[in-house]
Amino acid sequence: MDETNFSLTQLQNWMQGMLIQHVPVSTELVEVSQVVNASKRLSAVKHLDIYRQSYIARLRACMQNQFGALAYALGNELFELFADQYLDANPSGSYTLNTLGQKFPAFLEQTRPDAGEEEKETWPDFMIELAGFEYALSEIFDEQAIENNTTPTNDAPDELLKLTPVFHLFHHRFPICNYYLEFSQGKEPDLPFPEESFCAVTRRACKLGLFNIRGAQYYFLLNMQQGSTVEEAKGELVKTFNFSRTELDKVWIDWRRNFIASGFFCLKEADKFGK
């Protein structure tokens, strides 16, 4: 077979196509043996196959690393099937592997097995929510933030409290946070039934904290996240959910203590210096 005279660009396009697009070697116009040398132990095709096989295995391992709980929930075989399809459809375009799974939750939504059915099964919803949560955690882990804020003491006035710089709220249709926590503690959680759940994720001293919270706490903290003070967030809760202000003030004592202990709050900068 004659040697093919590729330009650099042509050669790189050809080789990348062989890796990423899973182009069957025999259907290519250019035979591998025209481009790649055989050695005394391997044919040209076998040499190229080392790269082809490693490409998908390597990225699949990264996906498994980034979506460990999802891989457990789906089982390795099904996870690999989804991951391989995803990587086929969404080859990486980034210098970093941390964003490899960025579009995976959306991909799972688009390709859910019951996409064409009127009656939807619930397990794909769980898997999609879990995938989204795991990817969000990886983003929060690396989020740019200055974490030198002062943690308030229990007697700090409410008006000095603000949310800690790395603070995220989640509202799920399944007990996603519980499931993730059990998985990360080495337990073997069963697939859960649908059950509305709320959680907060913080990062303190560069470590993630995951906390299950109640619906009312979620909406209170959501208001603070949108810029409300403690007093304004309480007012919103009373107005929106028709809560008794007296009852809210009673439970606020416990909420406040728990929120401070969990690292949800830090002190406002200006007030820290008495300004």
Partner: peptide
């Protein structure tokens, strides 16, 4: 090495062709 073309990244250290042009 090269890792990809057309704005893609294979995340592998792929071999370069060793000639005058490259």
């Amino acid at each position: 090495c090269w890792t990809g073309v057309n704005s893609l990244n294979t995340h592998d250290l792929l071999p370069v062709i060793l000639n005058e042009e490259s």
